[in-house]
Amino acid sequence: MESSNHTVTEFILLGFTTDPVMQWLLFVVFLGMYSVTVVGNITLMVLIFNDSQLHRCMYFFIGNLSFLDLWYSSVYTPKIIVTCISEDKSISFAGCVAQFFFSAGLTYSECYLLAAMAYDRYMAISKPLLYSQAMPIKLCTFLVAASYLGGFTNSCIITKRTFDLKFCSDNDIDDFFCDSFPLLKLACGRKDGYQTVLYFLLASNVIIPSVLILASYLFTITTILSIRSTQGRLKAFCTFSSHLVSVTLYYGSILYIYGCLRSTYSFDWDKIASTFYTVVFPMLNPMIYSLRNKDVKDALKKLFK
C-alpha cells in the first residue's frame, strides 16, 4: 500500500451526535460498558486458567472467546470514550488502518470460533461419555489456531484492498470507527471489484461459518429429541443454549449490516447495529456463559473463598 495512493493524512470520526449533553451521557454509558467488559472477560479467563475443573475443551473455547471479546472491545471503545468528551475527533491514517485491520481480523476470527464451538457442543451432546476422546485438547487447539489464522489472513486481504482505494479531500467518516462502507463512501478513485471482494469475504467468513453452525444445530436438536427423558432433554438443551444466544446476537447484527441491500443502507441504523456487536456483545458474553453454567459459578465461589 503506497502512501501516494491517498492525499488524506487523517480522518474525522463524526460519531453519534454533536449535542454536548448527549456526548457526556454517551461517555458515561460507554465507560461503564467497557469497565464491565474488561472485568467480566478477565474474570472468566482467570477462572478457566486457574480451576482444573474447567480445563476442558468447552472452556478452552470460552476462554478464547473472552480473549477475543476483550481485545475486540479495546479496539473501539477507548477511542469512542475519548471522542465523546474531546473536541478532537480525528484519527490518523495509520491509526485508521490499524483499527480496520484488527476490527476485521477479530470479527472473522470470532465467526470461525463460534462455528468451532457449535461443533464442540454437538459432540458433547451426541457423545457425552466419549467427549474427551472425541474432542482432545490437540483438536481444540488446532481449531482455535485455525480460527485466528483464517480471520487475520482475510483481514490482510480486505485491509489492503480498502486502503489501496484513493481518498481525496473529504475525510469525514459518518461512523464511530473505520469500517468498510463509510470508507468506501469517501473513496474518490476507481472502486471496481471492491464490493465483489467485500461480499466474497462476507460469504467465506460469515455465511459459510453460519451454515456450519446451523448444520451443527440441526444435528444437535435431532440428538436432543431422541433423548427419552424430559430431564435429559432439558439438560442437553441447556448445554448449547448459551452458544445459541451468542450466535443469534452476533451473527444477527453482522448480517444486518453487511447483508442488507445498499439501496436501503442507513448509517444511523448501521451505527446502532455496529454498537451492538462491537461494544454490547463483548460485555454480554461473559454473563451468557457464566450465569447458567454451574461449573463456572462453582469456580467463582472458590475464587472468592
Rank of each mutant, 00 (worst) to 15 (best):
M135L: 09
K302I: 09
K185C: 04
D120V: 15
L225N: 13
D19Q: 02
F276S: 11
Q23C: 04
T141I: 12
L26G: 02
M22S: 13
D174L: 13
N50L: 14
G63K: 13
L129D: 11
S52M: 13
N285I: 08
G150W: 09
F152K: 03
Q133S: 12
T7D: 09
S132K: 15
L139N: 04
H243P: 00
K191V: 02
V21L: 08
K160G: 04
S155I: 07
L106K: 03
D69I: 00
F240W: 11
I227S: 01
N171H: 14
V75T: 13
L214R: 06
M135I: 10
D268K: 07
M117L: 15
V197C: 11
C178W: 00
M283Y: 00
A118M: 07
R262N: 08
N171I: 01
K166G: 00
D51N: 15
K127W: 08
V21N: 08
A94L: 15
C57N: 12
S73K: 09
A145R: 02
K89V: 11
G259T: 11
N41Y: 07
P182I: 03
N205M: 13
P128M: 07
L106N: 07
S126M: 05
L198W: 12
T275I: 06
Y59V: 01
I85V: 13
Y112L: 11
L129H: 11
K191A: 01
S126Y: 08
S246V: 00
N285G: 01
T248F: 14
C96P: 11
F152D: 00
F304T: 08
L234Q: 11
S229P: 12
V28T: 14
A118T: 05
L25Y: 01
V197H: 06
M33I: 15
A299D: 09
T222H: 13
P286E: 09
G150E: 03
S132C: 06
T264E: 05
C140V: 02
Y289S: 08
P20W: 03
D172F: 10
S169D: 12
D164I: 03
V36G: 00
L255H: 11
D172S: 11
S103I: 05
D164F: 01
K305L: 12
I227F: 10
I224M: 07
P136S: 04
D172L: 13
C111S: 14
S253I: 01
G63I: 06
Y119F: 15
C260Y: 08
S180G: 05
Y59C: 04
I48H: 03
C238A: 06
L70Y: 09
T159C: 11
T153Y: 10
Y194Q: 04
I62C: 06
K160H: 11
T7R: 07
A236R: 02
G151L: 02
Y258A: 09
D270N: 12
C156S: 07
V8N: 00
T141K: 14
L201H: 06
R121L: 06
L54R: 05
A145P: 03
H55A: 13
F267E: 14
D170Q: 15
S66H: 06
D88Y: 05
N5R: 10
R190D: 12
Y148L: 08
A273Q: 02
S204D: 09
K89D: 07
T83I: 03
S103V: 04
I208L: 14
